[in-house]
Amino acid sequence: MRKRLVLKEDGSGKFWEIELVGTRQTICYGRIGTLGAVKTTNFIDSEYAQKNADRLVRSKLRKGYVEAEAGEEELQQQARAREKRIKDEKIRMVAEGNIELVAKSLMEGAGYEYALERNAKTVLLRVKVREHRFVELSLPHRSFLQRVGEVLPTIERVEQLLEECQLPFLLGNRDGCPPWGEVRRGISYIELLTVKLLKAPGMLRLGMALPAIMKGTGHEYSVDLFTRYSMWLHAYKAESDVYPATLHVAMLHRKVLHLLLDYGHLSDYRKHIVPTIELIAQAMEVASLDFKLLSTRSSEYGTVVWEKG
């Protein structure tokens, strides 16, 4: 069933169209000359759906709407435009229903372990690229199929970045970071007395060196210096058993780069800090999709179930 009604008033007019296929009802309405809005409703029973459609048509006729004349060129153009929009809406609904299947097929072909999480409007696709590293991509439901082809090129760019960078890093949010410009030492006075012969000199040197290295780069930054491992919520802190120091750098798209450092190799990696920041910034600019690089060590992701690709 399909009905097209129009209401002409003051030199302009409105259109209202209903299409019923089985239990799916699609209504398109708006000003003549526009594409209008589309609303789709699914009913449980086809008989009830038909009665509801008939009731809506009668209601519009009582308000002065009349059936459109088949020969009106403008209405024909509007009908074609609406049909395309309805078709696109149907394609979108089918795509949303097959996101899991598309992701599985993509990951199986590439051989990656992955996890998929659907939120109200977005899909979070997490892909393991190292034993303790995974890429997180956020894709809107509506454009998932259109942009899924950009997933593997983005992951490949991150893999290349991991090979090129001289320093270990994570790329995530600012959650848990100190205020910009601050050097935060995660150590109590008692701990300082306990570890001063082992780590305190390295902490002091690094705490003084990093602000000097970052001066003049134009990047906002802060520093965390730890002495012991804890299962922190934030991914970068979950690496503190291996890398007790973290340099946080503000990047594009509200992302924060976490460079993971230790206290014994300052002379080795001092020259690599700024080039690494620049290399990652360039990769973020050219990547097809915004991405995060996070740690599987974090308790935040401890319950993630990884699927075999």
Results as ranks from 00 to 15, higher is better:
residue 42 N to P: 04
residue 33 G to R: 03
residue 103 A to Y: 02
residue 157 R to V: 10
residue 94 V to C: 02
residue 142 R to Y: 10
residue 165 C to S: 01
residue 80 R to P: 03
residue 97 G to E: 12
residue 40 T to H: 06
residue 166 Q to M: 14
residue 146 Q to E: 15
residue 89 E to G: 04
residue 37 A to W: 00
residue 152 L to M: 13
residue 156 E to I: 08
residue 130 R to L: 11
residue 124 L to G: 07
residue 34 T to C: 04
residue 39 K to F: 09
residue 31 R to H: 11
residue 170 L to E: 03
residue 57 V to K: 05
residue 154 T to E: 05
residue 111 G to E: 09
residue 132 H to T: 15
residue 125 L to F: 09
residue 46 S to R: 12
residue 144 F to Q: 03
residue 98 N to W: 04
residue 146 Q to S: 10
residue 103 A to P: 01
residue 132 H to K: 12
residue 58 R to D: 15
residue 137 L to N: 05
residue 58 R to N: 14
residue 148 V to C: 05
residue 57 V to W: 05
residue 157 R to F: 03
residue 50 Q to H: 12
residue 107 M to W: 01
residue 72 E to Y: 00
residue 112 Y to H: 10
residue 42 N to C: 08
residue 158 V to E: 02
residue 101 L to N: 08
residue 116 L to Q: 01
residue 127 V to K: 01
residue 25 Q to R: 12
residue 115 A to R: 00
residue 55 R to W: 09
residue 131 E to G: 01
residue 163 E to S: 15
residue 140 P to E: 07
residue 48 Y to E: 15
residue 144 F to L: 01
residue 59 S to P: 03
residue 165 C to W: 02
residue 90 K to Y: 09
residue 127 V to Q: 02
residue 95 A to W: 01
residue 134 F to G: 01
residue 169 F to C: 02
residue 105 S to F: 00
residue 27 I to N: 03
residue 152 L to D: 07
residue 45 D to T: 09
residue 104 K to A: 15
residue 127 V to F: 03
residue 42 N to D: 14
residue 29 Y to S: 12
residue 109 G to S: 12
residue 156 E to D: 14
residue 72 E to K: 00
residue 124 L to C: 11
residue 37 A to L: 13
residue 83 E to P: 01
residue 157 R to N: 10
residue 164 E to W: 00
residue 131 E to K: 00
residue 125 L to G: 05
residue 123 V to G: 00
residue 25 Q to A: 10
residue 27 I to G: 04
residue 56 L to D: 12
residue 23 T to L: 02
residue 67 E to G: 07
residue 45 D to K: 05
residue 73 E to C: 07
residue 25 Q to I: 07
residue 28 C to K: 01
residue 32 I to T: 13
residue 93 M to C: 00
residue 162 L to T: 08
residue 101 L to C: 08
residue 56 L to I: 12
residue 159 E to S: 14
residue 81 A to G: 13
residue 55 R to Y: 15
residue 126 R to G: 05
residue 166 Q to R: 13
residue 151 V to D: 07
residue 165 C to G: 04
residue 42 N to Q: 11
residue 54 D to P: 01
residue 56 L to C: 06
residue 170 L to H: 02
residue 37 A to M: 06
residue 58 R to I: 13
residue 145 L to S: 12
residue 50 Q to L: 14
residue 37 A to I: 11
residue 65 Y to C: 06
residue 68 A to N: 02
residue 124 L to Y: 11
residue 37 A to H: 08
residue 150 E to N: 07
residue 156 E to P: 06
residue 118 R to H: 04
residue 27 I to H: 07
residue 152 L to T: 10
residue 102 V to R: 06
residue 137 L to E: 06
